[in-house]
Write a protein that binds this DNA or RNA. Structure first.
Lengths: 250, 250
DNA sequence: CGATTACTTTGATCCAAGTCAATCAAAGGT
DNA sequence: ACCTTTGATTGACTTGGATCAAAGTAATCG
């Protein structure tokens, strides 16, 4: 379930090869299986773009929800914050992914979304999306798949947090990133992290020192090379065995 | 965020006071805000009932997905099974809650659902649900809220698994159960657990011995009384402080 | 540019929770 | 009633990761 599950889930959201007509929708997840005219209708709804500077908020916990956001370019994190300062990063998000799904339930955002590099998003007014999805069944179905995939992804993270050791968590994380970069046309074995050790730690339920040590350990074993935020995966197969040794799979 | 987050989420799914007409739908989450005729349409779709004996499967990982399940009565767990036989519980589910949402993405179930006591579920053919939700916007919207709520709930669990200590996890878990029982008209302070210590541990990312010790500790402090599976909450306020207390540096 | 701040690495300890193991209690089967 | 199985509790001990501390390195900014 996880071996490739915290792994496959988040990324399959993207469907670069979708046959959309309008350029501005090409990288989105939603238009899968739509014909040209339907893409047009969707395009009218998602037209509004927004730039988010590195370090600034796309949305904050507690603010009103009106639109979903589709990441057009860049890299973001979402995190839930407790009043005492306890913070948990709930996800890292890249091009093509949809943010704001959590906010549908209460019509308020339940997490913060922060850009980890300069990013661009499309706003998708949710009420309008629901409206047009009434007349475009495949759009509605695709949207349901996306929400479902988010649930599966979260279950994968729960499994990771509930039963994996530090090194396994990091291996899983790196393989997940690797796959997602690769799907987007970037190298699967050579990439730059956008987040700090602390943010990785928060996501993986570890302290930053533990993350750093796990990196060093994997490097000592020649499985990866680490130069600060620059990561090279030298032996992806051994990295995979790290991930699956004590838990998950199926 | 979690203080009342892994807590409120799962249960608000239920909406006992919804004004549905047909008796068979009364406890369901879906009919919120529907008029009588619409409830009728929905009723035609969800009519089929199924009994699940304690210990048996509602669905298994990898099997084909066609219908969602609404729990009509009983108590279930969902879990992913690891190759070595160990299982990670991803949730406990009671009356009114919807199962199978994870399966929409791939059209295969991604987890097992097992009855922890004799239970009854309604089958909701998903294709039909999508179909009728085209003509009943409030049904579609309610369904989206339910999926979103599941995502929020999972984020709460991630926060719990990522940053809470054993005792805090157990306190959070008990308060969540308490609230869900109370919403369904049962005592908030006196109930029987349906699951074993091991299953609780799996859900909370702890070993069963740790769960047992955490129970004993809370009992020693006179916050709860434990007699095997029978739990009494003696001081719900102090239990609440347990949940969010730990010092917690940033 | 150098100074200040933010991030990373590494080492030395400590402790919460895991592991191993014994005992007990309840439930089921014959 | 008697065994067997399953689940719960508790104790002794071990350990993985947290914590504390120090030093190094990369960004950022006036």
């Amino acid at each position: 379930m996880l071996t490739d599950s915290s792994t496959p889930s988040q990324l399959d959201i993207l469907n670069i090869k979708s046959s959309c007509a309008t350029c501005s929708l090409r990288e989105l997840c939603l238009p899968v299986g739509l014909d040209e005219k339907e893409v047009q209708v969707l395009g009218d709804v998602v037209s509004h773009k927004r730039k988010i500077q590195r370090g600034s908020y796309l949305h904050r916990t507690g603010t009103e929800f009106q639109t979903l956001f589709a990441i057009r370019s860049g890299f973001m994190k979402t995190c839930v914050l407790e009043e005492d300062g306890r913070q948990q990063v709930t996800g890292f998000h890249m091009t093509g992914e949809l943010l704001g799904l959590d906010a549908i339930s209460t019509e308020m955002h339940t997490c913060d979304a922060i850009a980890l590099e300069d990013s661009e998003v499309c706003e998708i007014p949710f009420a309008k999306l629901e409206e047009i999805s009434r007349t475009i069944p495949s759009l509605m179905h695709q949207f349901h798949k996306i929400m479902s995939r988010e649930i599966v992804r979260d279950h994968g993270v729960m499994l990771l947090l509930g039963s994996m050791k530090a090194e396994e968590r990091l291996a899983t994380f790196l393989l997940n990133l690797s796959r997602r970069f690769s799907i987007r046309g970037y190298s699967a074995s050579d990439f730059n992290l956008r987040m700090t050790r602390e943010e990785i730690g928060s996501y993986l339920g570890l302290k930053l020192e533990t993350v750093s040590r796990a990196f060093s350990k994997l490097q000592d074993e020649n499985i990866i090379s680490v130069d600060n935020k620059h990561i090279q995966i030298n032996d992806i197969e051994r990295l995979r065995t790290k991930m699956g040794s004590s838990s998950c799979r199926s």
